[in-house]
């Protein structure tokens, strides 16, 4: 099913289109979505290892490290689902993250995946850590905090390789950043991602974490502006 159809089904039943973090069940729904996202991130990083043998060796090395990280994340989220009394397959999911990971140019792929999607992961996980802390779930809090640390590393890798792979080729860099921005736009989730308090908005932009990951003030500002003009589902 398309994400749009699932969202519409939820709206028709008076539910939020994207799981909020207001109940244990909606946290489970969110964790399920993240688990599937991690699976697709592992697949995407694996494809990057495979698809670009001509890229610098250190690029392959970083992407191989990311595959390992994502495989641990899948395992962590499968276990967190168990912790929340859920199971893999409990909620319908889509392959949208995987489709975003299919850019043919390595620079576009790291821009889209490592900066766009992993940036989104920073927002989502940072908020989840906060909510878990508030609800007194140290299992969820600690596990997601470590995943968040990895995601920050992946964003840094993305920034490094976007620069190195496009050195001396401003047109390639422009196209890669444009691709990242289409992903940022798509994953504003119809206005769900916004600047705001963890408990006030569905997905809160993690400005501090983004700074730590190497996003510039200008990039953060641009993302915030883009969320203000995002279309609803």
């Amino acid at each position: 099913m398309r994400a749009r159809e699932v969202a519409q089904l939820k709206i028709d039943q008076g539910l939020p289109p994207f799981p909020d973090l207001a109940s244990r069940d909606s946290i489970k729904d969110r964790v399920h979505g993240i688990m599937v996202g991690e699976l697709q991130a592992m697949e995407g990083a694996g494809r990057t290892v495979c698809d670009f043998p001509e890229a610098p060796w250190e690029f392959t090395l970083d992407m191989a490290r990311q595959v390992w990280d994502e495989s641990r994340h899948v395992e962590i989220y499968l276990r967190l689902l168990e912790h929340l009394d859920g199971y893999a397959g409990e909620f319908p999911e889509t392959t949208i993250l995987w489709r975003c990971a299919c850019a043919e140019d390595a620079a576009a792929r790291v821009a889209g995946v490592n900066r766009g999607l992993e940036g989104l992961a920073c927002d989502v996980f940072n908020q989840l850590v906060h909510i878990a802390r508030k609800m007194g779930d140290p299992i969820l809090e600690r596990a997601v905090e470590f995943v968040l640390a990895d995601e920050i590393t992946h964003v840094r890798m993305g920034s490094k390789w976007l620069t190195r792979l496009t050195e001396g080729d401003p047109e390639r860099r422009r196209r890669a950043i444009e691709f990242q921005e289409t992903i940022d736009e798509r994953f504003n989730l119809g206005g769900m991602r916004r600047l705001g308090d963890h408990e006030a908005v569905p997905v809160s932009i993690a400005t501090d974490v983004r700074r730590m990951a190497g996003f510039t003030e200008e990039e953060i500002e641009r993302l915030i502006k883009s969320t203000q003009r995002s279309q609803v589902y």
Binding site: L39, M42, E43, G46, R47, V49, A64
Partner: peptide, 27 residues
């Protein structure tokens, strides 16, 4: 590189995790 590329082609979670773990060791 083969293991990395195969992860997306492999439906079974256990095999995906196996490959995912070993790509980094081999790298």
């Amino acid at each position: 590189r083969a293991l990395g590329g195969w992860i997306a082609l492999t439906p079974e979670i256990s095999a995906k995790l196996l490959m995912g773990r070993h790509v980094w060791d081999l790298a």
